[in-house]
Design a protein around this nucleic acid. Structure first.
Length: 780
DNA sequence: ACTGCGCCAGTTTTT
DNA sequence: CTGGCGCAGT
């Protein structure tokens, strides 16, 4: 948006009356009334509203501050108040404050709350995610790194395709060595701030017989020719920029008088180095985090960063927030007892006031379906008790677990939303459309061009593409320019030549139109003239209408953007779907997705060895992986204000196999006094956890006796003693039979394919084939 | 150049 | 069970 180098606009020099002194050296001594936690007369009202520790964290503006904020202790409130305090006490202009978060959601929330507290005047804040802020900085200095400022940010799909190309060129068998695995290795290097020249050969990894490093180098050079970056590069290039151009760094250091960091425990090495470089100019740094909530180690986060804060900033002020405002004492005690099994914690003692509340409920069920049924029933009961569905969440370990709940909720007509599910911008049709925009915005974007050159089909297949590739490589140009050259040559068939000429013509026309047209209009023209929309209109498959619907949504989403460029930036960095929070719905999401959220009632299904803790976490990270899983469990429990329900199933289907499972070790680790085992399901009848453990052959915690988690494998569903007749409703008297047309409130119209008792097997026109309770459909 | 078939491998979490 | 990929046939 705005150039980050409009320093003069925002610096004190330009407003001598408003700010007493300029430059970090001449920083005035505390002119604000508060520097510590003690309540002082004359505290501004926004500080007076905080508890003493919070006040200390928000009010200590000089020097470095580390806030160890336990779950539900008001850390966002502290950050927001601190930011407001800095502005209200006129210590800095908005443009001199850098506030970084990990998620766009967190950034948005902070912006909103600062706005509320401040009532305007927060424009110009550098508030955003690590990625968006480093992208902004990088765009301003792209040429220093051999990039153009309109560089493309590649998504994972592009990364994989590019890596595959590189591997093909190097004769590395990409079937044997999956590009995604290589990508993971490279991203880990990038997370640690390692450019190819800094990776020590000893780290070269087993991948492709030690060729990973070389592939990394080639990948980087391909990125540069493509004028593109992947996620990791955004930070990495910033680091290079700052170290190679001290003057640039100095400018930013001078600019940012205050730095605020959220979720500090999740920073990786390169983010840490980035912060440290920026802070070294004497900024007042404030990092907020909770080592017990570090759940991103698998993508390079280093809890160590939080542990070494004092070393990095000698004399740092450390504030602990331990008063929890969220959960009941029972829930808090259960969560604390669980997390106490981890070693190497900074250690906090959370406390709270108020009624004990209900103990954490633990239920064992027969299988995943029973679990979903059980959760649905409980939700219905809770809802009858007056709790709104918005206040209820189902937190699962893996994305694939959401399905059984969705199906059950649909059958029971419980409205729900899946947060963080398949994302809008990751759908095929959206990615295709975006690829068109990318080529318009940046003709050199080979990956995007390649994606849509023959979509819709226009007779430009593999042969043509290969020829173009070869030429591009030989000439050192982009695919688009190579294609331009091909039109005038006879290296390809005349048919292909005309087709190619036509697309290129289209693109240059669109490019011209892009100058004086809003993006939304342009999108409509492009989707129409390219034949892309037409392609789906002619498609008779069930999902085609949905795809067209999505394309329409995309066009209207474009209305919010001033330029194609800003939209593309949004697509790459703000990969999220707007959530319809307006309506009352149960929330389903992964535990990772739930961090930072809270609900009255939380369901935590799937607490089985192998699923949670996840086998892979333990295989790949060992003891550290297990501890991270335990923190994930802790995060899950601490999302609950009033009620937490944990469940595990004795049988679970994975791929297409039934596996018997044993309860998660985390269940045994819950302090017994704060847990109530639900025996009503007839499983694990009444036996306390210790006995249950013997019954199912589980060993002590951490022991290998837990083994593989999932036990025997069977092909067919294990027979249950209890049929689920209890949850059945009498069949409808509608007399629906095979072939009847029906209408379902959620799925729309469909045709009955079969009748099984009171369930109907229906093939819906749009939603596909589902089994639904007869009482929820009406004859069409 | 495109279509269809059969084989395989895969599913943790995300900016 | 799905989807991606390679191969063979048109």
């Amino acid at each position: 948006m705005s150039d980050p180098f409009e320093f003069s606009e925002n610096t004190p020099e330009a407003h001598p009356e408003s700010v007493p002194a300029s430059g970090p050296e001449a920083e005035p001594k505390a002119s604000g009334p508060v520097t510590g936690g003690a309540m002082a007369a004359g505290d501004p009202p926004y500080l007076a509203m905080l508890n003493p520790e919070q006040r200390e964290a928000a009010g200590t503006l000089d020097g470095a501050v580390l806030v160890l904020a336990g779950a539900g202790t008001g850390k966002t409130r502290v950050l927001v108040t601190r930011l407001t305090h800095i502005l209200m006490s006129r210590r800095a202009f908005p443009g001199q404050i850098l506030a970084v978060t990990f998620t766009n959601k967190a950034a948005r929330e902070m912006m909103e709350r600062v706005g509320n507290l401040l009532g305007g005047g927060a424009e110009g804040l550098w508030l955003g995610t690590f990625h968006s802020i480093s992208a902004r900085i990088l765009r301003a200095h792209a040429e220093m790194l051999g990039l153009k400022s309109n560089f493309t940010i590649l998504d994972t799909d592009d990364q994989h395709r590019l890596l595959r190309q590189v591997m093909e060129a190097e004769n590395v068998d990409y079937k044997k060595w999956p590009p995604r695995a290589l990508n993971a290795i490279i991203q880990r290097w990038k997370d640690r701030g390692l450019t190819p020249d800094k990776v020590t050969p000893s780290e070269a990894s087993e991948f492709a017989s030690g060729k990973a490093l070389n592939l990394y180098r080639l990948y980087q050079s391909r990125l540069k020719t493509l004028n593109a970056c992947d996620f990791g590069d955004l930070l990495l290039h910033n680091l290079t920029l700052f170290t190679k151009h001290p003057d640039v760094l100095a400018d930013y250091q001078r600019r940012f008088k205050y730095i605020l960091v959220d979720e500090y425990q999740d920073t990786n090495v390169s983010q840490y180095l980035w912060l440290r470089l920026l802070a070294q100019g004497g900024s007042n740094v404030c990092c907020v985090g909770d080592d017990d909530q570090s759940i991103y180690g698998w993508r390079g986060a280093e809890v160590g960063n939080i542990l070494r804060f004092e070393k990095d900033f000698p004399g740092a002020h450390i504030v602990r927030l331990e008063r929890n405002y969220r959960s009941t004492p029972q829930i808090l005690a259960a969560a604390s007892g669980l997390i106490a099994h981890n070693e190497g914690r900074l250690g906090k003692t959370l406390w709270t006031e108020g009624d004990d509340g209900e103990k954490v409920r633990v239920t064992g069920v027969w299988d995943g379906d029973a679990e979903a049924r059980d959760v649905a029933e409980t939700i219905e009961a809770i809802q009858r008790g007056g709790t709104s569905l918005n206040e209820i969440a189902v937190l699962v370990r893996t994305g694939s677990q959401t399905r059984s709940f969705e199906e059950r909720f649909i059958t029971c007509a419980i409205p729900y939303r899946v947060i963080g599910g398949p994302r809008f911008y990751e759908r095929k049709e959206i990615r295709d459309a975006v690829a068109y925009f990318r080529v318009i915005a940046q003709p050199d974007d080979d990956l995007a061009f390649e994606r849509i050159i023959n979509t819709p089909r226009r007779g430009l297949g593999n042969t043509t593409l290969q020829v173009a590739h070869v030429l591009a490589r030989a000439e050192g140009t982009s695919l688009v320019s190579a294609c331009g050259a091909l039109i005038g040559s006879d290296d390809i068939r005349p048919q292909a030549r005309t087709a190619l000429a036509r697309v290129l013509e289209d693109f240059s026309r669109w490019r011209a139109q892009a100058q004086n047209m809003n993006p939304s209009e342009l999108a409509e023209i492009v989707l129409d003239e390219s034949g892309y929309a037409g392609m789906w209109q002619n498609d008779k498959s069930v999902e085609a209408p949905g795809r067209l619907e999505n394309l329409k949504e995309l066009v209207s989403a474009l209305e919010d953007f001033e330029s194609l460029d800003s939209f593309l930036e949004h697509v790459s960095l703000v990969m999220e779907h707007e959530d319809n929070t307006g309506t009352d719905m149960v929330n389903i999401m992964t535990l990772h997705g739930a961090k930072g959220l809270e609900f009255d009632v939380v369901f935590l299904p799937g607490w089985e060895e192998g699923l949670f803790p996840h086998q892979r976490a333990m295989d790949e990270q060992g003891a550290a992986g297990l501890e991270e899983e335990r923190r994930l469990a802790y995060v899950g429990l601490t999302r609950a204000r009033k009620l937490a329900y944990i469940s595990f199933a004795a049988n679970r289907r994975l791929y297409n196999q039934w596996n018997s499972a044993i309860p998660s070790r985390f269940i045994e680790e819950l302090p017994k006094d704060h847990v109530e085992v639900d025996v009503s399901k007839g499983l694990y009848g009444g036996s306390p956890p210790e006995e249950r453990q013997k019954k199912y052959g589980g060993g002590g915690s951490g022991g290998s006796a837990h083994g593989q988690g999932y036990g025997g494998k069977r092909r067919s569903k294990p027979s249950s003693k209890k049929e689920d007749a209890g949850s059945m409703v009498a069949a409808t008297p509608d007399g629906l039979t095979k072939g009847s047309r029906v209408f379902h409130q959620k799925f729309g119209y469909g045709r009955v394919q079969g009748v099984e008792g009171n369930k109907l097997d229906i093939s819906f026109d749009k939603a596909g084939r589902k089994k639904v309770m007869a009482s929820f459909v009406n004859p069409a």
